[in-house]
Nucleic acid binder design. Structure first.
Lengths: 122, 122
DNA sequence: ATAGATGCAAAGAGTTTGCATAGGT
DNA sequence: ACCTATGCAAACTCTTTGCATCTAT
């Protein structure tokens, strides 16, 4: 991320402005709205650089393409609605997570995904 | 899964015998040990059928290809070592998971992944 | 005998990379 | 001016599909 370019501004603008994790294709499409002609390869390269820089976080849901979201949202988890497929943010963590690991294992992070039906689909 | 074939027996044998979630390529390689010449397409078709039948479960770790494991292992979670990449099973669940969801959301399942260093790498 | 299952190879989807050019500093 | 970043297209990886053949029932 050495240089500031319109392409990187566009990608960053999309991801930082999103309230849900977006796929590379969604980010590309949205970024193209702000900057016509931006290439998908540039989107991938920018996302990779932002991941390495810790600006964004990779969110991977089983059976789905990877998604990305702003690291500025802070630590949180996700709720995946089985009916409509939407992904919602979930605040807070369950307690005692690190204690689940076997003896001698050092836990330094975790991911939690809840499944079910969102308010609209329940 | 209408017919019982040597190929399906081989794939089932590998997955049921594994103590960790395996990728399609790993399953193919292991199955080829028991049944030389088995095709990768057959492995994918068999895994899909077993998933649909509920015999196996899909385990997806961020930034990794999908893995599969026996549903007979029962409900458990995973520990992903950042150093060696190995995946270990974790027994038990954190309490109060369903309470994390927003009001009106119905939680019927969850996934927990722990990250860190395994005993050997810590 | 018959319909489902297999293996191969081609097709698809998603992601990465090589290279000449554009453009930020 | 220099050197990184871009866009395009090709390459790659993983997974699915079409089709002729084989095989479990």
């Amino acid at each position: 991320m050495e240089r500031r370019t319109p392409q990187r501004d566009a990608v960053r603008g999309v991801v930082e402005g999103a309230r849900r994790p977006m796929s590379a294709a969604e980010i590309h499409e949205a970024a193209a709205g702000a900057l016509a002609g931006i290439g998908i390869a540039t989107v991938y390269r920018t996302l990779k650089a932002m991941l390495d820089a810790g600006e964004i976080v990779l969110v991977s849901l089983p059976g789905d393409t990877p998604r990305y979201e702003s690291a500025a949202l802070g630590h949180h988890h996700h709720f995946h609605c089985r009916a409509c497929g939407m992904v919602f943010e979930v605040a807070g963590c369950p307690p005692g997570l690190a204690r689940l690991a076997p003896r001698g294992f050092a836990v330094d992070g975790h991911e939690v995904i809840l499944y079910g039906r969102c308010r609209g689909c329940a």
